[in-house]
Design a protein around this nucleic acid. Structure first.
Length: 390
RNA sequence: GGAGGGGUGGGAGAGUGGUUAAAUCCACCAGACUGUAAAUCUGGCGCCCUGACGGGCUACGCAGGUUCGAAUCCUGCCCCCUCCA
């Protein structure tokens, strides 16, 4: 295997364009990884993923361990074969479930003891077995077990989470040096700059092939998240991929690529899609809204996604109202295509050296901060749908 | 023709003298969702004024009546359903 798992092709400001190589092929960065927690990106299948341009997906060791079980997936030929996805797969360790399933777990130096959310049974995730599970699943990129704490945690809590995360990462490396090639380090440190700095320093000393920024999108404000992302990314080595865990929305992707991030995963695009919220260049809209009832054009005219190429917004609206299963698929395809196209466009902009302009134009349109602009857009929207604005 | 049951807010359906502008569900109108225990959750939903608090008006088939007070009791009328003929 090539020693260079990451190549940085170009930078533009702090924004980067590169590529990551894995046993299941390479993917360009910036990259957005759709989330297939239980071995499936909810509502879409692997051919949909391929068609909408996904190059890597994220799955989850904790969820797959509980069901259907690591051993079963091994027997079925590994996760790639099981879910019929040939491309790269990154798995999360279960560390995030230590945060999201807070009431069902206990953290000690040994690891995270979970009470299964499925049947209440007890399971211990350790730095060692978590990585083993991920290896056995066949993941291309593996995340170490980490301790993720809420944004409002006090300094002491954050400090101990960070220290434990680093100790666990080191422990893991001592145990199996073979998986070093694919194991990322996870930076913690909450909203404390000095702790982020310490976390980065300790992890970099362990020399990982990539670094994740964890512990964000856990309740802090967007401004804080952007700041900590930029701050932390600035500390990380240039020649390694930077993965911001759990982010984000379209505007987050743009802001964080601007901060120097290369990889993202987020459930938001698919989750909000299932609830009828769809991305357009003019911001997020809810197709369930009455304004879409008779809208004959595609949700986003000109969008190259499967849904917009084939169906009207009115049809999508109807599918949601009727709770037809196709609604979830089409909406998920649209939002995923939207964010992935966004990463493609950002990459192209970086390669052209026009990222700053791209960022400015995208945000100006997607997230107008000026109220007048907002009102104007609403008016235009109403015009295009033949409705009146009060 | 006889016997019985029933008519409540957009729909279904509680309520049977005051704490009821009226439970609940659906529909409808909005909002939220960021390493997925989420095809979920939250709010609004008679009319008028208010950002909100609050206030005013109208309301439980129709018309009268009893009562301090009625969706709830009484009388008449209209309509619907079931069974019998």
């Amino acid at each position: 295997m090539s020693r260079d798992r990451f190549e940085l092709r170009a930078t533009d400001g702090k924004a980067r364009a590169g590529g990551v190589h894995t046993p299941h092929g390479s993917f360009p960065t910036p990259a957005f990884m759709p989330v297939a927690t239980q071995g499936s990106v909810k509502a879409v299948d692997s051919t949909d993923l391929e068609a909408l341009g996904a190059r890597i997906v994220l799955s989850n060791a904790y969820h797959l361990y509980l069901r259907p079980g690591v051993e079963l997936i091994e027997e079925m030929g590994g996760l790639h074969s099981f879910m019929a996805w040939d491309g790269p797969v990154l798995t999360d360790s279960g560390g995030f479930q230590g945060f999201s399933l807070e009431r069902l777990r206990r953290i000690s130096e040994e690891g995270i003891a979970f009470k299964s959310h499925l049947d209440g049974s007890s399971h211990l995730f350790t730095p060692e077995n978590s990585v083993q599970f991920q290896e056995r699943l066949g993941a291309d990129i593996i995340m170490p077990l980490d301790v993720c704490v809420p944004a409002d945690s006090d300094r002491e809590t954050v400090e101990s989470a960070l220290a434990r995360t680093t100790r666990w990462a080191a422990r893991r490396l001592d145990a199996h040096s073979e998986s070093r090639r694919q194991l990322f380090g996870i930076v913690q440190g909450g909203l404390f700059e000095d702790l982020r700095e310490r976390s980065v320093r300790d992890l970099v000393a362990l020399d990982f092939p990539g670094y994740a920024i964890g512990g964000l999108s856990v309740g802090e404000s967007k401004a804080q998240m952007y700041h900590m992302t930029a701050y932390t990314a600035g500390l990380l080595p240039e020649d390694k991929p930077r993965y911001l865990m759990g982010v984000g929305s379209p505007e987050d992707l743009v802001e964080c690529v601007a901060a120097g991030v290369d990889m993202f995963d987020c459930v938001l695009p698919t989750r909000v899609a299932r609830n009828g919220a769809l991305f357009t260049p003019d911001g997020r809209v809810n197709v369930l809204g009455a304004g879409f009832r008779k809208l004959e054009r595609p949700l986003q005219p000109g969008c190259d996604c499967f849904a917009c190429r084939n169906y009207s917004a009115a049809y999508l609206h109807h599918l949601f109202r009727a709770k037809e299963l196709l609604a979830y698929r089409l909406a998920s395809i649209h939002n995923l295509r939207f964010v992935i196209r966004l990463t493609e466009e950002m990459r192209a902009a970086v390669l052209r050296g026009e990222f700053a302009e791209y960022r400015r134009d995208f945000l100006r349109r997607f997230m107008p901060t000026d109220e007048a602009v907002r009102v104007e857009q609403k008016r235009k929207w109403a015009q295009s749908t033949g409705r009146r604005v009060p």
